[in-house]
């Protein structure tokens, strides 16, 4: 564990708490892509079911339980409790365009051709693009509530912090995880446009609005 990874994980944790706070206080999931949230459930279940056969630390296990539990809870809130506030007509990204390529990539790029390792690779690839339906929705509506942008910023910062973590681990432990690093760089790259608007507008007190 190093500071980059710890701060990254805390940022990830914070992003989910911000999202829950947004949904609970506004009693609405307006502006949140159900598809992205469903993809995160798939990512966490595919990757963190190793809870049952791989023990790393209490920290690691507790985070895994939290991420699986909270992502399922968010889906429940969107699908049932606040269903009327969820507008599928603007959540139109075709997720099969993400699922199929990720499935194929995970069959080609994995560390061992066995179901658990293929699932692990699949989850890494899928996580890297799971935010696309959300960003696509943002692009379509052209604006977002401030709190939704804080959620996205925390999520993006989590991924960005994993990059110095890998560099640090390469020099201190001599390890490198090419699959995670490649997917992680792609994932962070997807946030660059968003970060630009977030740091130049939202953090200056302006509304999050994309140029028409």
């Amino acid at each position: 564990m190093n500071l980059f990874r710890l701060l990254g994980d805390l940022s990830h944790l914070a992003s989910i708490l911000v999202l829950l706070h947004k949904i609970q206080t506004s009693r609405s999931c307006r502006g949140i892509s159900f598809k992205t949230q469903a993809l995160y459930v798939a990512v966490f279940v595919a990757r963190y079911l190793d809870l049952f056969w791989r023990y790393i630390s209490l920290y690691n296990s507790a985070m895994k339980v939290f991420f699986i539990g909270s992502s399922c809870y968010i889906l429940y809130l969107m699908k049932y409790r606040y269903r009327p506030t969820n507008d599928p007509s603007i959540d139109t990204f075709r997720i099969e365009y993400l699922l199929v390529p990720c499935a194929i990539l995970s069959l080609i790029f994995n560390y061992n051709f066995m179901p658990t390792e293929i699932l692990w690779s699949f989850s890494i690839f899928l996580e890297s693009v799971a935010i696309l339906p959300q960003l696509f929705m943002l692009q379509r509506t052209g604006e977002a509530e401030a709190i939704t942008t804080h959620y996205l910023a925390a999520l993006g910062i989590y991924r960005a912090l994993y990059i110095p973590n890998w560099i640090y681990r390469y020099f201190t432990e001599g390890v490198i995880d090419p699959i995670a690093v490649t997917a992680g760089i792609v994932q962070t790259g997807l946030y660059l446009d968003f970060f630009y608007v977030y740091f130049t507008k939202v953090l200056q007190g302006q509304k999050f609005e994309l140029p028409a």
Binding site: D9, G174, D177, A180
Partner: peptide
């Protein structure tokens, strides 16, 4: 080539 990590990250 350095060894691959043991999936110890989240």
């Amino acid at each position: 080539v350095p060894p691959v990590q043991a999936h110890d990250e989240l």
